[in-house]
Amino acid sequence: MSSQQSTQTMKPATAAKKLGVYLPATPTEFQEGVVTRAELNELQAEPPAWLRELRANGPHPRPVVAAKLGVSIAGLARGGVTEALTTEQIEALKQERPEWLEKERATQAEVRKEAARLKDAQKEKQQKAERGGGRD
């Protein structure tokens, strides 16, 4: 009996998320098809023109927009950004520096600072435990 490996497939939405692109902006064939793991790997290794264009100019999905602006996805929503944005629109927001964006960037900076502090505290606690454990 031969064990035949089944081809792993994913929905277009999942593939788009893994590729970091906005699904409605992808070609119809991509949106209506099924993507295999091998096809996804090929798209990542050698992106076609449409994928390079989407990654460069958008429209970008909210996680990418949030990362480019230096805020959280929730921060985008609080700022009223609920749709995908193009690179040009993101750059315009960076230039305009609206109050909500500055506030959300500051909030995100505090969140990162606190996460780093907690990580350092955890690391220090672990080191103390390792040093203390060998004294018995």
Rank of each mutant, 00 (worst) to 15 (best):
A49F: 10
G132K: 11
P48T: 11
L101A: 10
Q122F: 04
R37A: 07
Q108P: 00
P12V: 12
G133E: 05
Y22F: 15
L23C: 09
T28E: 15
G33H: 09
A49Q: 10
R52W: 00
H60K: 02
V64K: 08
P63W: 01
E32F: 07
L101P: 03
K94W: 03
E39R: 15
G134V: 15
P24W: 08
E83F: 01
E130I: 15
I73G: 04
R37H: 08
R62C: 08
A67P: 00
A16D: 09
E102H: 00
T7R: 15
R112L: 14
L51H: 11
E91F: 03
Y22A: 03
A115D: 06
S2C: 03
Q89K: 15
G133K: 15
Q126H: 10
T87Y: 09
G79C: 01
G70P: 09
E29A: 14
L69P: 04
G20S: 13
L19Q: 08
Q5V: 09
R117V: 02
E39Y: 03
D136E: 06
E124S: 05
P61C: 06
Q89L: 01
P59M: 08
P61F: 12
G132W: 06
A129R: 14
R97I: 05
A115Q: 14
E104C: 10
A106L: 11
E46S: 13
K18F: 01
G75Q: 11
P12K: 00
G132D: 10
V71T: 10
A66V: 04
T107M: 00
N41E: 13
E96N: 14
R135G: 08
T86I: 04
A15E: 00
E29Q: 05
V81W: 04
Q44Y: 06
K94E: 14
P47D: 07
E99I: 03
D120T: 02
R117Q: 09
W100V: 13
K68M: 13
E104L: 10
G80W: 08
T86V: 12
L23H: 05
T9P: 01
G134W: 13
A106N: 04
R105T: 03
L54R: 07
F30P: 04
K128Q: 15
T7N: 12
A129P: 01
P98E: 12
V65M: 04
P27T: 01
R97G: 02
P63L: 09
G58K: 04
T36C: 03
L23T: 02
D136A: 12
V21F: 08
G70H: 03
Q108G: 02
T87N: 11
Q4H: 08
K18Y: 06
S72L: 00
N41F: 07
K128I: 08
K18T: 06
K103C: 02
A38C: 01
Q122K: 14
I90P: 11
A56N: 09
D136Q: 12
A13L: 05
L40K: 12
K123H: 07
T86D: 10
E83W: 00
A67R: 14
A74D: 05
R37Q: 14
A66P: 04
R97V: 12
P48V: 09
R97P: 01
V71L: 03
Q127Y: 11
A92Q: 14
S6M: 09
G134N: 03
M1Q: 07
